[in-house]
Amino acid sequence: MEGPTSTGIPNRKLAMWTFIGSECMLFGTLIATYMIYRGRNLVPPYPHDLLNIPFITVTTFVLLMSSLMMVLALAAVQRNDLRATKLWLGLTALFGLIFLGGQYYEFSHFVHEGLPLSRNLFSSTFFVLTGTHGAHVAGGVIWLSTLLVRTVNGKLDARHAETVEIAGLYWHFVDVVWIILFTLIYLLV
């Protein structure tokens, strides 16, 4: 469809890398805001009152595993093993969904415990930062689901490995961001 490129990197893949670069600034700003405001909250509840580290450790592990599934999905589609592709793509999306479910549980638990979005400085920074990440995960799950549907319909095979690879780039990036968030928000509480 498109000819050879000047750099040798396909346009769409280069665009994804570029997009990730831009996203680094987005999350960098959000994270910097969180860190600047850490410990400045004046109104209870405070982070250590609410954060449930063991629970989030489990969902973090699930999200990490989804990255592994993603790697396996790419490997499968590259060798045109479509059954395995469907399995691993489905598991990646499923693990993403489980993570999102965990986040939903966490958010509603916080609100229930007296920490709605508008409560204090902690709620503002926490919900907007983790919520933005959650929105990225949700977007990724939808994207992976479309790839899964296309595979099931027989419209995606080894010729489209690049599409899966680009989705994978995005997915791994979102995972890496979560590792940083998990460390800064939960482990350094």
Partner: peptide, 24 residues
């Protein structure tokens, strides 16, 4: 690509402060 995201985040903070009562 590098300069707009911080501004976007700032605008989102402002939007949330105005619409949802956050405290950025």
């Amino acid at each position: 690509l590098l300069a707009f995201p911080p501004f976007t985040v700032g605008l989102i903070f402002m939007l949330f402060d105005r619409s949802f009562g956050t405290h950025f």
